[in-house]
Each structure stands twice: as structure tokens, then as C-alpha cells.
């Protein structure tokens, strides 16, 4: 595993610029954050496909909906906190209910938002976006996966939400040019222990580091990465629930109504299994560096290693 040479946002900007040049239907809608989200790359490469909507997310989402009714493929992007929370009624009424082909991109998701603090963190977006009946929700783990997911999103006809992290992450997936399959979980490791870890987004590479350290101590734990949160890979979840005694879910989101809750929604009705959900608890966060905040909330590789060891030893 290596530190990515590019951040998710850089790859997002580059890939959308390419898509806009390849597909005339693609347009990028910015909420005056293009230099942060890297929509600026689209403006540079293909100015006519870049639309500045100003600091007005509700209208941004509505304009995207109108463009989609005319056969365009609008990619509407802002910080996650703004595009999901501030424009949620617009997402429901103007995008999801009419099943319009709008691609929504939440940049700066979760905790990793560069010292911006409470207003810019997003711990609710998985809850909000997975509640929408027609929406698909994608949560890539590294920059290369972002690229593959964006191709799949552009080919998919219907509303789709992409949850991105801001900064350089860790490339943890093997190189592949395989087409990304929406709704399929990725088995990263099959361990010997009867505990399995399930993770999503930027937490997946950090869980992988923690599990590698535990492996060195002789604790061998299964790891499955979920880049699609809706539709969920129920087959994988049922297999996990049937084969392991204890599941651990890890997310950079509220544990309530988040990834772990989605997993439990499946397991509780099909194959109940004890689950520990690691993520943000019932609280707001604050300013701080990425690693400081991850550690504060128990999501750094070091804290994850300690917590997972405790669980394994406690069982």
C-alpha cells in the first residue's frame, strides 16, 4: 500500500474533464468551490461544459434537474455538507422522485475536510442519500477507484451520488482496468478469525493497515470493502453474517443511520449477527488536522488496531 500520488478530488477533476470531452452530454455545475473540488479542471479543459451556479446549492440542484430532462448529463458538485443537507428537498422533489439522470458529487466528505470544522464535516450524508428510493450511493476507497466509479456512474441512467474525500489517501486496491460493477462489495482478505471487518470510503485503506498490523501479531481478520452503499451487496453481507460470529463496521459518518446501520438492516432480517459499529458517535466535531481528528474519533489505523484487538480478545 502506498500514499496516493493524487487525491480523490484531483482524480475526480481530471476524470470529469475527460468525460466532458468524450461525451457532449456531460456538463459540470459548480457552487463556487471549483478550485477546491477541482471542477476547475473541467473549466480549463473544456470551458463550454463548465457552468458556474454561484453560492446557491438549491438552485444548482434544480438547474441540474432541468438539464437532465433535456438529455444532458449534469454533474453537480459542492462540498458534501452543502449539496446534501442544504439542497435535500430539491434532491427529493426535483431529482430523485422524477428519476432524473443527475450525478451528485459531495466533495470534502466526512471528517477529512482540512481544518474546516463543524459546518463542513458531513456525518449525515449516507443516512440522507441512502434514504432516497431511486438514488444509488457510491463511496470509493481510493483515487483509482474514483476513476472507475465515475465511468460507471456516467454510463448508469438515473440519479447517483458520489461521496469523495478531499486529500491524498492510500492506494489500497490492486491495479485494475476492470469495469466497476455497481452494487458489488470487494473481498480484500479472508482471515482465519471468526471476526470480520466491513468498511467503506476512506476508512477502507485505514482498516487495511490496522488489519495488517494485527496479522503480524497472529490475529487474522477478514476484510470486505463496500464502495457501493446503495444498492448494497446483500449476498456478501449474508455470507459474512453466516460465516462469522462478530462483524465490525467502520465508517467516517454517524454510526446511527450510517453504513453499519445499513449492514444491520440486512443482517437483522436475514441472519442476525453481533455487530460493533465504529464511526462518529452522537456528537459534533471540531477543527483539527486529518490525523488528529481521525484519532479523536477512534478512526486512525492505530486506534482501529486497538479497538479491533479488544473486540477479538473480548469474544
Amino acid at each position: 500500500m502506498t500514499v496516493s500520488t493524487k487525491s480523490m478530488r484531483d482524480v475526480f477533476g481530471e476524470e470529469l474533464a475527460k468525460l466532458s470531452l468524450e461525451d457532449k452530454r456531460v456538463v459540470a455545475l459548480d457552487g463556487d468551490l471549483g478550485n477546491s473540488t477541482r471542477l476547475s479542471f473541467v473549466e480549463k479543459a473544456n470551458p463550454s461544459s463548465f457552468l458556474q451556479m454561484g453560492i446557491a446549492e438549491q438552485n444548482l440542484v434544480g438547474v441540474a434537474a432541468g438539464l437532465a430532462t433535456c438529455g444532458m448529463i449534469p454533474w453537480a458538485c459542492s462540498f458534501t455538507a452543502f449539496i446534501t443537507r442544504r439542497a435535500f428537498d430539491q434532491l427529493v422533489v426535483s431529482v430523485d422522485q422524477p428519476k432524473l439522470n443527475v450525478k451528485l458529487v459531495g466533495s470534502y466528505s466526512g471528517l477529512l475536510t482540512s481544518n474546516t470544522g463543524k459546518t463542513h464535516h458531513s456525518f449525515e450524508d449516507i443516512a440522507l442519500m441512502t434514504s432516497l428510493p431511486n438514488m444509488i450511493v457510491l463511496s470509493p476507497g481510493d483515487a483509482k477507484e474514483v476513476q472507475r466509479i465515475m465511468r460507471a456512474m456516467n454510463n448508469y441512467h438515473g440519479p447517483a451520488y458520489l461521496r469523495l474525500s478531499r486529500d491524498e489517501g492510500l492506494d489500497f486496491l490492486d491495479d485494475t482496468d476492470e469495469e466497476f460493477i455497481i452494487g458489488k462489495a470487494k473481498w480484500l482478505k479472508r482471515g482465519k478469525n471468526d471476526v470480520a471487518c466491513l468498511s467503506t470510503g476512506a476508512m477502507s485503506p485505514r482498516v487495511k493497515i490496522a488489519l495488517a498490523r494485527l496479522e503480524a501479531e497472529g490475529i487474522s481478520i477478514t476484510h470486505v470493502h463496500f464502495p457501493t452503499l446503495k444498492p448494497l451487496d446483500e449476498k456478501a453481507i449474508i455470507e459474512l453474517a453466516s460465516s462469522y460470529k462478530h462483524l465490525i463496521t467502520v465508517e467516517e459518518h454517524y454510526v446511527r443511520h450510517g453504513f453499519g446501520s445499513l449492514i444491520n438492516e440486512v443482517t437483522s432480517s436475514v441472519q442476525p449477527v453481533k455487530t460493533t459499529r465504529i464511526g462518529i458517535q452522537n456528537e459534533y466535531s471540531e477543527c483539527g488536522g486529518n490525523e488528529e481528528l481521525l484519532a479523536k474519533h477512534g478512526l486512525s489505523p492505530e486506534k482501529l488496531e486497538i479497538k479491533i484487538r479488544e473486540i477479538v480478545e473480548g469474544d
Binding site: Q58, G62, V63, T69, C70, G71
Partner: peptide, 12 residues
């Protein structure tokens, strides 16, 4: 909300 969609249609 409808006016924003109208803006999108006119832009399209």
C-alpha cells in the same frame, strides 16, 4: 423549485 428546472431547460 420549478423555476430552477426551467433555468436548466433554457440552458440546455
Amino acid at each position: 423549485q420549478g423555476i430552477s428546472a426551467g433555468v436548466g431547460m433554457a440552458l440546455a
